[in-house]
């Protein structure tokens, strides 16, 4: 196990000790608990998270309205929102399984939302965006130093909203509004209905709906988050957590001291880091091959490679 897991100071399997929070969170409730704690402690004064249109309709001051048609009901459509309290955090919690452009709120968070200490959760590519913005703040005036906690989530690939619509309503034959939870695990895409029905789709079906931009991504475990987390590697109901930066280390230590999480050594749990490492390598190898193929694309002309 090496570079595929990024740099980290420590790694554990963890879950929130907050039972109420665990009920509305995916897996170990790590992101919600961390942000709730960081809000309480004043480590951050707001967090950018992926909420839904329902949340946005109820909390219009927490989002920026784009040209979204709010009359159209679109369950599971992610809308980036800024939450300032635990109640708001919980109302917005849960993985949406389609991409939420959280970085879009990063500058405005420090402007009309008035945050001095911003929390942000995002995919590995979004963590790359955040760090690039700190080092090369070309259009991000006075933003870099306000980023107080960036939490990355493991990500194999992501879907645009319409792909989720297609998968759930067409392939799984369920209405999106009747879906309770979606999940990718054990080689399948799972759709859980509110009335208890479960539909599983083989990943073979979902692949063609993936966002093409994901296929050149070389990061699985959010190497650039202060802390990064995901369910892979830990038992059901637990999450794997990498503590990576100095900021991450200090926030994690404080949260542990306050009893926010219970943990197990990652070496002691099944399937453990080995699986994380395997999946990370699979993603990186596959996507490196994509980048390689783009050099000629079979026509002797190169497609762009963003990595220099």
């Amino acid at each position: 196990m090496g570079a595929e897991l990024g740099k980290y100071k420590s790694c554990v399997s963890a879950r929130s000790t907050d039972k109420e929070l665990l009920k509305c969170a995916q897996d170990g409730g790590i992101v919600s608990s961390l942000f709730a704690f960081a809000l309480d402690e004043g480590i951050i004064d707001g967090a950018i998270v992926a909420a839904t249109k329902e949340f946005a309709a109820k909390n219009p001051s927490k989002v920026i309205l784009d040209s979204t048609n709010f009359d159209m009901i679109e369950p599971w459509r992610p809308i980036p929102a800024i939450v300032n309290t635990k109640a708001e955090l919980l109302a917005a919690a849960g993985t949406k399984y389609n991409i939420s452009p959280n970085v879009a709120l990063l500058k405005e968070a420090t402007r009309s939302f008035g945050l001095d200490k911003v929390g942000i959760v995002g995919t590995p590519c979004q963590m790359q965006a955040v760090r690039k913005a700190q080092l090369y703040p070309i259009g991000m005036r006075d933003v870099g130093a306000s980023i107080a906690l960036a939490v990355g989530i493991f990500c194999m690939e992501n879907f645009p909203y319409q792909s989720i619509l297609q998968l759930v309503e067409d392939h799984a034959a369920m209405k999106l509004e009747s879906v309770k939870k979606m999940e990718i695990g054990k080689g399948k895409f799972w759709v859980y209905g509110k009335r208890g029905q479960v539909v599983q789709l083989p990943l073979k079906v979902t692949h063609k709906y993936e966002q093409p931009g994901c296929h050149v991504c070389l990061d699985y475990v959010a190497n650039l988050g202060d802390i990064s987390t995901g369910s892979v590697g830990s038992p059901d109901g637990w999450s794997t957590v990498f503590v990576r930066s100095k900021i991450g280390d200090s926030v994690w230590a404080k949260a542990m001291a306050a009893g926010v999480f219970e943990t197990q050594p990652i070496e002691k749990v099944k399937p453990g880091l080995e699986l994380v490492s395997k999946l990370a390598n699979e993603k990186i190898t596959k996507n490196k091959a994509t980048l390689e193929a783009r050099k000629t694309f079979g026509v002797g002309k190169a497609l762009r490679n963003p990595y220099i």
Partner: peptide
């Protein structure tokens, strides 16, 4: 250079960077 080249992953950074708010995210792009 990004979207036509199949590289955009919908992070939203461009929206934040634009000084004149010319960019919005519509269904992830």
């Amino acid at each position: 250079q990004v979207i036509n080249q199949g590289l955009c992953m919908g992070c939203g950074t461009c929206v934040a960077a634009c000084p004149v708010n010319a960019i919005t995210m519509e269904y992830g792009k």
